[in-house]
């Protein structure tokens, strides 16, 4: 069993870059995402930054396919075939009422992985994220940090090229948050492209290679992290960085 999921994928052509072209999303007559236009090339960690209600989570869901854009398009460089090669981790970890190992095995089964292969890949994922000793425990009895780690392990076991995370640490204490951040850095080092949302400025500074700054459903700024934090081009981003709460 290879510990390099991405390289294992490379026999097929990559699904990246992901191209978002003028994507909009409406609900209840309100436009919540307006004309998003960006691409996600392979590699690195992209942070969707912005205050609450900026449309970060919706944008991630549009990209992952949980939502369908009301206008515009979302295109992958290559059709990913039967199994999609991108996965998602949610703000509040969704734990099935099963053991830790069964949570991973279930996702693998859903992806069509054969039973014999699931066992090994489950063990591999749990070991990789320090949950090997917890395999037989009920997932819902793990601590918040452990649950989020399991959610990431579960997503990782699917060997995604691109991993979406929606505010993965917003419900965690500082220690658990740091642990998750280290894990994410490790994923990027491993070659997985990561795209996450956060409203935590410090986290964005620590992790981001690139920042997409959103405000009221619009993509206001798309810049590499250093440039963005050194001097954002837009007034909204400047106000946000200055800690003036905007919405």
């Amino acid at each position: 069993m290879s510990a390099k999921p991405v390289s294992a994928m490379r026999d097929v052509s990559s699904i990246l870059p992901l191209t978002i072209d003028d994507a909009c999303f409406e609900a209840g007559g309100r436009r919540l995402v307006v004309g998003a236009r960006f691409t996600v090339p392979a590699g690195g960690l992209t942070v969707l930054l912005g205050p609450n209600g900026a449309g970060k989570s919706l944008t991630l869901r549009l990209c992952h396919g949980l939502l369908t854009p009301s206008a515009g398009s979302i295109r992958w460089a290559a059709q990913s075939g039967s199994a999609k090669r991108h996965a998602m981790v949610f703000q509040k970890p969704i734990m099935l009422r099963r053991s830790v190992a069964a949570n991973v095995a279930h996702a693998l089964a859903a992806a069509g992985i054969a039973r014999a292969e699931r066992v090994g890949r489950t063990q591999e994922a749990l070991a990789r994220f320090g949950l090997g000793g917890r395999a037989d425990q009920p997932a819902r009895l793990l601590s918040g940090g452990e649950q989020q780690r399991l959610a990431i392990a579960r997503a990782w076991s699917l060997r995604p090229e691109l991993l979406f995370l929606d505010e993965p640490t917003s419900q965690l204490d500082p220690a658990a948050t740091r642990q998750i951040e280290e894990l994410l850095a490790g994923l990027v080092a491993e070659g997985i492209t990561v795209m996450m949302s956060t409203h935590d400025l410090g986290q964005a500074k620590r992790l981001a290679d690139r920042v997409l700054f959103l405000h009221r459903g619009r993509l206001v700024e798309d810049a590499d992290a250093q440039t963005f934090f050194a001097g954002p081009a837009s007034a909204e981003a400047r106000a946000f960085l200055a800690g003036e709460l905007i919405w």
Binding site: H64, L66, A83, K84, A87, M88, F90, I94, L96, H106, A107, A110, A111, L158
Partner: peptide, 11 residues
């Protein structure tokens, strides 16, 4: 409760 995750893994 499960909706997001199940749809994410294709169920």
């Amino acid at each position: 409760e499960y909706r997001d995750h199940l749809r994410s893994v294709g169920l």
